[in-house]
Design a protein around this nucleic acid. Structure first.
Lengths: 203, 203
DNA sequence: GTCTATAGTGCGATAGAC
DNA sequence: GTCTATCGCACTATAGAC
């Protein structure tokens, strides 16, 4: 295994308390989820991508659902870490800046996985019943929502809409075929500009 | 079959030259695609949703891929119709207004299908090789992109980024769990406001 | 930690009767 | 246009050897 692969494994493992072998499985699964969707990815495909048999994969996770769960939780943990850093800031403006640029960086770094994971209907269903996911979204909403400038209104739903639009725009845009050829730096700059226009925040 | 179901069938049939029976299949398939993804939806699930057997579905479409194709083309046709209306306007500003509000209306009307279809990896792969899809995206980009105000820059990539962000934001936000409870009128208003901020267009 | 082998199930797709 | 019945295959998951 090369150093690049080790780095990915370490990041994936750290994000969800996984062994190196488990992280390798999740890593391969994420790539396949992005290409074929969660429902269109089989355990056999994951095993083949790793060059092992299905039984070897089953030794790391008891079911396919557990792999999906681990993959989703890893991405969720990355989001949580960004939120932790943002909430540690002293002013609300600084917190927003850290949150927005952190999310943009996350989406660009993990173009091929983060966005697809967040948009897959299977994962959405997964998250809908998970308190941890709702808590993360709640923290994002309360940081991005209040006085975000998106709506100019005062209803409680405004913040949720602003957050939903921002998350959808960032996670959807990085994967869009129209911008598939753009380099990471350009992508980051454009998304920060977008966030600024959308939220009146310096991303 | 009730009148509401007939109306949906008529809309689906008109969008892609389908018989009423074929439209019913596509209609059921779209619902299931939204819930389980394209890869996670089987012919048996579609047949069960319609209350018939697999063989009856196979009488309408020769393969599962043809159902996916028909579903995708239906949504693409709806986009094309909006573009046709927009390009018929006399001024560029009016054309943009018609395009933006048309897309917002489309996304809200078909919350449960349009957005998922556009974001499913299987459909993306499908579209990547389809000239018709690229042409539609090209027309959108040339209307939304030039001097859109998103970037303020002059590079050729700017328009594509603006278009990608706008499409991703609209199609992603309508399905987002954070705004699942919002009524259609509020959703439309918020998305128009978002488009205005993002593109400097009166949506 | 990985393998072979195998179970049970559901899949896409086809043939032919009504 | 719908049915029953079926083929061949890929799937999830398990058992047990190395």
């Amino acid at each position: 295994m090369g150093p690049a692969r080790q780095a990915i494994d370490a990041s994936t493992a750290a994000a969800a308390d996984l062994s190196a072998a488990q992280a390798r499985v999740v890593d391969a699964a994420l790539d396949l989820f992005a290409k074929h969707g969660v429902g269109g990815t089989s355990l056999q495909m994951i095993a083949r991508a790793l060059g092992v048999t299905k039984a070897a994969v089953y030794h790391q996770f008891r079911t396919k659902d557990e792999i999906v769960l681990a993959a989703a939780e890893g991405e969720l943990t990355r989001l949580q870490e960004v939120l932790d850093r943002a909430e540690a800031e002293t002013t609300r403006a600084q917190a927003r800046h850290v949150l927005v640029s952190g999310i943009v960086d996350l989406a660009v770094d993990r173009r091929r996985t983060s966005s697809v994971i967040l948009n897959d209907p299977v994962i959405r269903q997964f998250f809908a019943d998970h308190d941890r996911f709702r808590r993360v979204m709640g923290r994002m909403t309360s940081l991005l929502g209040g006085g975000s400038g998106l709506t100019g209104g005062t209803r409680a739903s405004d913040g949720r809409v602003a957050t939903a639009v921002f998350v959808a725009a960032v996670s959807g845009a990085v994967m869009h075929p129209l911008v598939a050829g753009l380099d990471d730096d350009t992508m980051r700059a454009q998304l920060r500009l977008m966030a600024h226009k959308l939220l009146d925040v310096e991303g």
